[in-house]
Lab assay of single mutants.
Amino acid sequence: MVYKIRDKETGKVYEVTIDEETNEITVYDVKTGKPVKTVNMTIEELKEAGYEVEPV
Protein backbone atom coordinates (compact mmCIF):
# COMPACT_ATOMS: atom_id res chain seq x y z
CA MET A 1 0.00 0.00 0.00
CA VAL A 2 1.23 3.53 -0.78
CA TYR A 3 1.48 6.23 1.90
CA LYS A 4 2.77 9.76 2.14
CA ILE A 5 4.76 10.46 5.26
CA ARG A 6 5.82 13.86 6.56
CA ASP A 7 8.65 14.51 8.95
CA LYS A 8 7.12 16.74 11.64
CA GLU A 9 10.48 18.42 12.38
CA THR A 10 11.65 19.24 8.84
CA GLY A 11 8.33 19.23 6.96
CA LYS A 12 9.81 16.98 4.26
CA VAL A 13 7.33 14.69 2.54
CA TYR A 14 8.17 11.21 1.29
CA GLU A 15 6.18 8.62 -0.60
CA VAL A 16 6.52 5.10 0.74
CA THR A 17 5.17 1.65 0.08
CA ILE A 18 4.56 -0.59 3.06
CA ASP A 19 4.41 -4.38 2.88
CA GLU A 20 1.98 -5.14 5.71
CA GLU A 21 3.18 -8.76 6.03
CA THR A 22 6.92 -8.09 6.37
CA ASN A 23 6.81 -4.45 7.64
CA GLU A 24 9.25 -3.58 4.86
CA ILE A 25 8.98 0.11 3.99
CA THR A 26 10.46 1.40 0.73
CA VAL A 27 11.05 5.16 0.62
CA TYR A 28 10.83 6.88 -2.79
CA ASP A 29 12.16 10.21 -4.02
CA VAL A 30 8.94 12.10 -4.87
CA LYS A 31 10.61 14.01 -7.76
CA THR A 32 12.20 11.04 -9.56
CA GLY A 33 9.97 8.21 -8.35
CA LYS A 34 13.07 6.10 -7.67
CA PRO A 35 13.53 4.14 -4.44
CA VAL A 36 15.89 5.81 -1.98
CA LYS A 37 16.08 3.23 0.82
CA THR A 38 14.28 0.35 2.47
CA VAL A 39 13.69 0.05 6.21
CA ASN A 40 11.95 -2.47 8.41
CA MET A 41 9.37 -0.63 10.56
CA THR A 42 5.67 -0.70 11.32
CA ILE A 43 3.33 2.25 10.75
CA GLU A 44 3.16 2.73 14.52
CA GLU A 45 6.97 2.87 14.74
CA LEU A 46 6.99 5.53 12.00
CA LYS A 47 4.48 7.61 13.97
CA GLU A 48 6.54 7.20 17.16
CA ALA A 49 9.62 8.36 15.22
CA GLY A 50 7.90 11.68 14.46
CA TYR A 51 6.23 11.13 11.08
CA GLU A 52 2.66 11.83 10.02
CA VAL A 53 1.38 8.90 7.95
CA GLU A 54 -1.45 9.23 5.40
CA PRO A 55 -2.71 6.68 2.86
CA VAL A 56 -2.58 7.93 -0.74
Rank of each mutant, 00 (worst) to 15 (best):
M1Y: 11
M1R: 14
M1Q: 13
M1G: 11
M1V: 13
Y3R: 09
R6E: 05
R6M: 10
D7P: 00
D7C: 15
K8L: 11
E9P: 01
E9F: 13
E9I: 14
G11M: 03
K12F: 10
K12T: 12
K12P: 00
K12E: 14
V13N: 03
Y14G: 00
E15Y: 15
V16T: 01
V16A: 14
T17D: 03
T17V: 11
T17G: 04
T17S: 07
T17W: 11
I18L: 07
D19Q: 06
D19M: 05
D19H: 07
E20H: 11
E21I: 12
E21F: 11
E21C: 13
N23Y: 05
E24T: 15
E24Q: 14
E24K: 11
E24D: 07
E24W: 14
I25V: 08
T26Y: 06
T26N: 05
V27I: 15
V27L: 15
V27Q: 04
Y28T: 07
Y28A: 03
D29V: 02
D29Q: 02
V30G: 09
V30C: 14
K31S: 13
K31V: 15
K31W: 11
T32D: 07
G33L: 05
G33N: 07
G33W: 06
K34L: 13
K34T: 09
K34F: 11
P35S: 07
V36E: 05
V36M: 10
V36W: 09
V36S: 05
T38Y: 07
T38V: 11
V39G: 04
V39Y: 13
V39D: 04
V39I: 15
V39M: 14
N40S: 11
M41T: 06
M41L: 08
T42P: 02
T42I: 01
E44V: 09
E44Y: 08
E45D: 12
L46P: 00
L46R: 00
L46W: 04
L46K: 00
K47G: 09
K47S: 09
K47Q: 11
K47W: 10
K47N: 06
E48N: 14
E48T: 10
E48V: 08
A49Q: 10
A49C: 15
G50R: 05
Y51N: 02
E52V: 07
E52L: 06
E52F: 06
E52K: 03
V53Q: 02
V53G: 02
E54T: 09
E54G: 05
E54P: 03
E54V: 10
E54S: 10
P55K: 10
P55G: 09
V56L: 12
V56H: 09
V56A: 10
V56R: 08
